[in-house]
Amino acid sequence: MLQVISLLVENKPGALMRITGLLSARAYNIESLTVARTTDPELSRMTIVVDVEPHLRKQVIKQMNRLINVLQVADLTDSPSVARELILMRVRAPMESRPAVLKEAEIFGARVIDSSLEGFALEATGDSEKLDEFIDVMRSYGEIEVTRSGTVAVMMEARRLRLSSPVPTKNATNPQTTIDNGVLNA
């Protein structure tokens, strides 16, 4: 089944690699993955859709939680949330089918973002199944090329962000040292 996960991640080197590496090491298939900065530039929000056996859903979340750069993980699969995907599509449309293509685009709420002699560039957002349908319909008009963003999702209920507080280093408790005030006395 498809599991939708939302992660809040520190923008640290390798953070993305740790997440994708973990998923592949445990043989969870990534269906889609999006990542971008949040309003706090130190943090990123990721939405990952993984294809996983239902009984492993909890394990996926727990494994993600083990990662030190991951601040929060939420399983949105069954919780109140909205999910959307963006697609950009180039449709080759000869003159005679252009009005029909436009009509169809309108039905799906797609916008024309560019037009040329060859055809249109369209933009559409929606849930993934709706977009699948849109793609099928457009394909019937001619050659298309599609880029999908992958799902992005947001929780509808606020979840408290639980963060660990700073801890003192051994430094504070271990007086053993070879330098005093920065002067080496080894």
């Binding site: 030190i68 601040l71 963060l163 660990s164 801890v167 280093t169 430094n171």
Partner: peptide, 15 residues
């Protein structure tokens, strides 16, 4: 310069 580190802050490290 060596500046002693007195605290560690790993907000995402859950123990």
């Amino acid at each position: 310069h060596y500046a002693p580190v007195n605290a560690i802050h790993l907000p995402g490290y859950k123990v």
